[in-house]
């Protein structure tokens, strides 16, 4: 367990993770209080939050917005990434990748002018924040495609558009899914930030800001724990879905 590259069974791994989590919680619980609330308090705050309509409503608002933003982001990313192999679009895709270095805060005013309402503003900011990261990931996938995949298409007599469809659209569909899984975290992380811009519509981000404002650290940590767990659940579900939709990705795992 302490040797580099040592292989351990799944069961051992699970036992190890559970023990590490329990140990961390125990140390946290037993450490002197101070400003940071103990896990038992966080847990009870979470239990209390879960029974309220407030949390469910806000959670739904955030989830819907995240899924909407993900959908638009995927569509935009795929469009520009697929076309990035066409020289005319290559520079545009390259520019989108570089947009990772633009801060959203500096663009809020411009987006406020360009959008109709708060809901649109949040959605556009999220999409603008996610797309550069998605595009970066997918362009890296495209760049890593072995020349043999295109050569096999050529030997089968495919034209360039057919090669693009077979190798990039069909052949990399599983990796698009994996990219979505990996980048969902970005969307989930950004949602709390953009929701602070228009708090009238609620959302888990707005709730966090509200609790932060009143220094209610117990509820803040309870919400963080919930956000964390939901993120993990999505990660797991997307992983399951990927295995089901693209069974060949599971061959080497089995």
């Amino acid at each position: 367990m302490f040797k580099p590259f040592e292989k351990i069974s799944r069961q051992t791994f699970l036992i190890m993770v559970v023990s590490q989590v329990l140990l961390t919680l125990l140390i946290w619980q037993l450490s002197p209080g101070g400003l940071i609330p103990q896990p038992s308090h966080v847990l009870s705050a979470l239990g209390q939050l879960l029974t309220t309509r407030l949390l469910i409503d806000n959670l739904l608002v955030s989830l819907v917005l995240t899924l909407q933003a993900m959908l638009y982001s995927i569509l935009i990313t795929l469009l520009f990434s697929y076309f990035s192999v066409i020289p005319f679009f290559h520079s545009i895709a390259g520019f989108i990748v570089k947009c990772r270095y633009l801060t959203l805060t500096g663009l809020i005013f411009i987006f406020t002018l360009l959008t109709r309402d708060g809901s649109q503003l949040k959605l556009s900011l999220l999409v603008f924040g996610i797309v550069p990261f998605f595009t970066t990931s997918f362009l890296a996938v495209i760049l890593r495609i072995p020349a043999q995949e295109f050569e096999l298409c050529q030997t089968l007599g495919y034209n360039r558009w057919q090669s693009l469809y077979e190798v990039i659209v069909v052949g990399k569909a599983d990796q698009v899914f994996e990219m979505v899984r990996q980048n969902f975290a970005i969307a989930w992380m950004m949602i709390t930030m953009v929701e602070g811009l228009n708090m009238s519509e609620g959302g888990i981000g707005a709730l966090l800001i509200k609790y932060n404002k009143y220094n209610d650290l117990t509820h803040v940590l309870a919400l963080q724990a919930l956000i964390f767990v939901i993120g993990l659940c999505f990660d797991y579900l997307l992983g399951l879905l990927r295995g089901w939709l693209f069974p060949y990705t599971q061959i080497h795992k089995n």
Binding site: Q148, L152, Q154, G171
Partner: peptide
């Protein structure tokens, strides 16, 4: 390209 049937050394096939 495409005129010949080509069998590469590592018998590459589409993994998907």
């Amino acid at each position: 390209p495409g005129d010949m049937g080509v069998i590469f050394q590592n018998y590459y096939q589409f993994g998907w």
